[in-house]
């Protein structure tokens, strides 16, 4: 079954990079799909398409067969990107492309195509502009837990309070309804008699599986 998923993922990846990423190749290595070569950042504005690539970076992307459940691991060896947090490079050489759970929660399309056209392209376009101008074109998240709290508070549309975010994520992680839990608005009432409508709406926006991932990410920092 895993082998079948892996082969299917490989076909998908190859069809995504065919033509549009002519310098990348995909293969299966050590139970993952590996995409390697030079990633080309291409303009899409008609007035710039004939200018050719905006930039290109040597990359290595490791995709697990269970994508998108497991975040792709991206590294960019052999480029002129400084290996520093300012350039959103982790100590282990991996690239911090995006807060994975944030992207999953805020985008309906989590396909490989969407990942390559979205976060991956944005990250390397950002690197190019950062190198040229010193600024990230789309802004940047704070590092570590602070960035996680900022992002999750935005997604949950709540105060940037660690405990509140964690409690909300616990609620959303369960199969709905959990009406007998204490309402996160601190009214002291149970959810069923308080913010049930708002929480129902939120749970439709953030499926339990994604809420579980967000909770797990947050807890990995709380436990540190």
């Amino acid at each position: 079954m895993r082998e079948f998923r892996l082969q299917r993922l490989l076909r998908t990846v190859r069809s995504v990079i065919a033509f549009v990423q002519p310098r990348l190749s995909a293969s299966i290595k050590n139970g993952n799909v590996i995409v390697e070569g030079r990633f080309v950042v291409t303009p899409t504005l008609a007035e710039h398409t004939s200018d050719g690539a905006i930039a290109e970076f040597s990359i290595l992307v490791v995709l697990a067969s269970s994508y998108p459940n497991i975040e792709p691991r991206v590294s960019a060896p052999g480029n002129n990107i400084p290996q520093t947090p300012a350039h959103h490079m982790n100590d282990d050489g991996s690239c911090c492309v995006v807060i994975w759970e944030e992207w999953l929660a805020t985008n309906e399309d989590n396909s490989i195509q969407a990942y390559f056209d979205g976060p991956l392209k944005n990250y390397f376009l950002g690197q190019h502009i950062k190198l040229a101008t010193g600024n990230w074109p789309f802004g940047e998240r704070n590092h570590g837990k602070e960035g996680i709290l900022d992002a999750f508070a935005e997604i949950l549309d709540c105060a940037r309070n660690e405990k509140k975010i964690e409690y909300l994520l616990r609620i959303l992680s369960k199969d709905w309804p959990r009406g007998h839990w204490i309402c996160p608005c601190k009214s002291g009432q149970i959810i069923r008699k308080c913010c049930v409508v708002d929480l129902k709406t939120l749970s439709e926006k953030i499926p339990s599986k994604i809420a579980q991932k967000m909770l797990s990410r947050l807890r990995s920092y709380i436990l540190k």
Binding site: H88, N90, V97, V98, I99, W136, E140, I148
Partner: peptide, 17 residues
């Protein structure tokens, strides 16, 4: 210009560490 287009299309994402 490409970054501006992505932002106006609502496709911006932010890096993190």
């Amino acid at each position: 210009a490409e970054a501006a287009k992505i932002a106006s299309d609502g496709g911006a994402t932010q890096p993190w560490c």
